[in-house]
Design a protein around this nucleic acid. Structure first.
Length: 696
DNA sequence: CCTTCTCCTGCCACGGGGT
DNA sequence: ACCCCGTGGCAGGAGAAGG
């Protein structure tokens, strides 16, 4: 040990010794787990080599801790009803799918081809290099999902361990690769050379290091720390877990016959090599992209393969100017065989993509726009790495989304088309055109200028031929950072307040449309989008008090609960009949009285809700005087107050505070603890008895 | 074809917090 | 007092499902 060498150490040796001490003692790690510095030529120049063999492991652990705390997470992956916060860099490094996805995707991505439970396992693996206690019946799906996401280790779990190089013969340390791995240069070359990583192994793909944060120093077997785990899996690299467990491998490791590729879905085995620089990347095996183009939101668990975002916009007809669905407005998936600008006139809903996601920072220097000296390239400019994109390479370049009423083939229709843009100088783009809602809006008139924009800029539409509105959130990044890190150490607390994580902004003719970043629906009102976005994020959940259903919108729940209570608030003023909702009432008025409930005449009234604690005001349905009034009671129901108010205690607390509504979450929190409002818990009668009126 | 139900989205009122 | 923003109810349309 170096300590014994101290008396004869020179300065270099002492430095090395100190380094060794740091390595072994600096952060409490044990000395025998760190590779001590090696002394080179003791007589000549002293070369010191010190390897912190635990660095990669501790780094990964730190990253995982940060993920679990939501710290510095820059992407939210929505799978089914669950959200997963993560770091783009990590996902990108471990998954070829994410690597490509994040070229164009924003801060929120939604996966509809994988189950949340499976993704959770994959994510745990990405951040821990371990797969722990996965049920055998999940393994096949896990492997399939690993293939879809391009996570090689998981994708190749079906390979019998005996075929894995590092397991064969157990002589991994003596393998040429293991030896070469000790040389950083060799490591580097191995990373960049798939063939080199497969040296000596011809039968199976070799698990490369693209998916692992560990440097490939010591190929090892991953084994879970717990002794009672049922399954272990093999990995090349796990420096701090150099444990081999042949017994478990031989007896319990599943050996599935799913090693081959899923031919019917054209899913290729994930690449075993590291994600290449974009410029160098050839089309890699990816989940096919040709199936979701007409289904922007396929149902969860569908067998569809992941829709890789496309980079090329396509022309699409717009229904008038209403922009009911921005999927037909902003972007559209581009059939790789249909690049003609006007070939998609009658396309159905297409997979929305093509949002221009600039990559570099835009600087407003007072007089104009100057992009940072980064390799200014909009995503559209980058040689893309999916075969689909490659197929459009050259077409996408210098193509932007244009929005031209004149280009529409039908009266009143707008069309987005692909247009070649000739680079040129901006005419009037130097000044921020206007300030809107805390954002600067500038206008560029050439696509080349857009190339210099950053992800902080919201460039989502043009306003005319070769002119583009650019929305620049002011201090967006600062806001995001600040709000991600809450004072009390709970980074999630203000997550909802992070700006622009949920939408793009599209400006057409000076009007702002808010585009959901997940499904690309457009909204005139930002509040509508925020409300809508909960159906993706499930940031808030609205459970029914009477059954197990959960709703993403409070209004849905309220309407649903009214069905439980049976209350009929809508009363026809012509015949006095009451109805459970507007639709039934309107149908009644139209069919029975042959009148239009939406007309000017006052045909119905809405009585205040008696059975639910909702806002105590009602609208008198009079389109000419739609003033909210506090109803004095519809006298439709005679409700036992002792039983009609599920939150009676809460109401009593607020009884002296006016009509302040009770927070549902407070109510539900209490209720959930007491489990007192579910119908099955009531004895003999429901909690909500009320006298059914004659009209019922 | 009709009815019923759910979903959706613009609109608006309310309430809380900040200035 | 005013403004901003989040919340959530309402209107009314659209579409799906079922009879």
């Amino acid at each position: 040990m170096p300590a014994a060498m101290t008396p004869v150490m020179d300065g270099c040796q002492q430095a090395a010794h100190r380094l060794c001490q740091v390595l072994t003692l600096g952060d409490g790690r044990e000395a025998d787990k760190a590779q001590v510095p090696a002394y080179g030529d003791m007589e000549g120049k002293k070369l010191i080599t010190a390897t912190d063999t635990q660095y990669s492991g501790s780094l990964l652990q730190s990253l995982n801790d940060q993920r679990l705390q939501g710290l510095y997470c820059d992407v939210t992956v929505i799978v089914e009803d669950r959200k997963f916060r993560a770091h783009k860099n990590i996902l990108s490094a471990c998954s070829t799918y994410f690597h490509q996805l994040f070229i164009v995707a924003g801060a929120v991505v939604e996966l509809n081809f994988i189950r949340a439970e499976i993704f959770a396992e994959i994510l745990n693996y990405i951040y821990s290099a371990k797969i722990v206690r996965v049920k055998c019946d999940m393994l096949e799906e896990l492997i399939k999902s690993g293939k879809l996401l391009g996570v090689p280790f998981i994708a190749e779990l079906g390979i019998p361990l005996s075929q894995v190089k590092s397991m064969a013969g157990g002589e991994k340390d003596d393998s040429p690769e293991a030896q070469s791995n000790s040389d950083p240069k060799s490591q580097e070359s191995a990373k960049n050379s798939p063939s080199s990583s497969k040296a000596g192994v011809s039968r199976i793909p070799v698990i490369g290091d693209a998916f692992a944060l560990y440097s490939s120093d010591e190929p090892n077997i991953i084994e879970d720390e717990s002794d009672d785990d049922d399954v272990i899996f093999c990995s090349e690299t796990m420096p701090d877990k150099p444990v081999t467990s042949e017994k478990k491998e031989s007896s319990q490791t599943p050996t599935l016959a799913t090693n081959g590729q899923v031919s019917d879905t054209k899913i290729a085995a994930p690449s075993s090599q590291s994600p290449q620089p974009v410029q160098d990347t050839k089309p890699q095996p990816q989940p096919p992209v040709n199936i979701s183009l007409t289904t922007p939101n396929p149902p969860p668990n569908c067998s569809a393969v992941p829709p890789v975002p496309q980079l090329a916009p396509v022309s699409v007809a717009l229904p008038d100017q209403t922009f009911q669905n921005a999927a037909s407005l902003v972007t559209a998936g581009l059939d790789r065989k249909q690049a003609a600008p006007d070939a998609t006139q009658n396309l159905p809903k297409l997979q929305p993509i093509g949002i221009i996601k600039p990559k570099t920072e835009l600087i407003l220097d007072g007089n104009g726009i100057s992009s940072c000296p980064v390799s200014s390239a909009v995503s559209l400019e980058q040689p893309t790495i999916t075969h689909k994109n490659v197929s459009f390479d050259g077409v996408q370049k210098k193509q932007v989304v244009t929005f031209s009423p004149a280009s529409s083939s039908k009266p009143g229709e707008y069309k987005i088309k692909i247009a070649d843009v000739v680079s040129g100088t901006s005419k009037d783009s130097s000044e921020p055109r206007r300030i809107l809602d805390g954002k600067k809006i500038i206008t560029l008139d050439t696509a080349s200028e857009i190339e210099g924009l950053s992800t902080g800029c919201k460039v989502y539409a043009n306003i005319g031929e070769d002119t583009y509105d650019i929305v620049i959130p002011i201090k967006e990044e600062e806001e995001g950072l600040v709000k991600l890190e809450d004072d009390d150490g709970f980074p999630d607390r203000k997550r909802m307040k992070i700006k622009h994580e949920d939408h793009y902004e599209l400006i057409v003719d000076g009007r702002v449309y808010y585009i959901c970043i997940v499904c690309k629906r457009s909204y005139v009102c930002l509040t509508s989008l925020r409300r809508h976005f909960n159906v993706h994020s499930w940031e808030k959940k609205y459970p029914c008090r009477y059954c197990e259903r959960v709703f993403p919108l409070a209004e849905y729940r309220t309407k649903h609960e009214i069905h439980h209570t049976g209350e009929r608030r809508y009363q026809c003023l012509t015949c006095g009949s009451s109805f459970i909702n507007y639709q039934v009432m309107a149908s009644h008025i139209r069919s029975v009285h042959s009148m239009d409930p939406a007309g000017d005449s006052k045909l119905y009234r809405l009585n205040p809700c008696k059975t639910l604690q909702i806002r105590q005001y009602a609208y008198i349905a009079d389109s000419s005087n739609s003033v909210p009034v506090i109803s004095d009671g519809g006298i439709v129901y005679d409700i036992d107050p002792d039983k009609s108010e599920p939150a009676s205690a809460e109401n009593q607390n607020h009884s002296n505070e006016g009509p302040k509504p009770v927070n549902w979450d407070d109510i539900f929190l209490q209720q959930s603890n007491q489990n007192m409002f579910k119908p099955t818990t009531s004895e003999g009668s429901t909690e909500f008895e009320f006298v059914i009126p004659e009209s019922y």
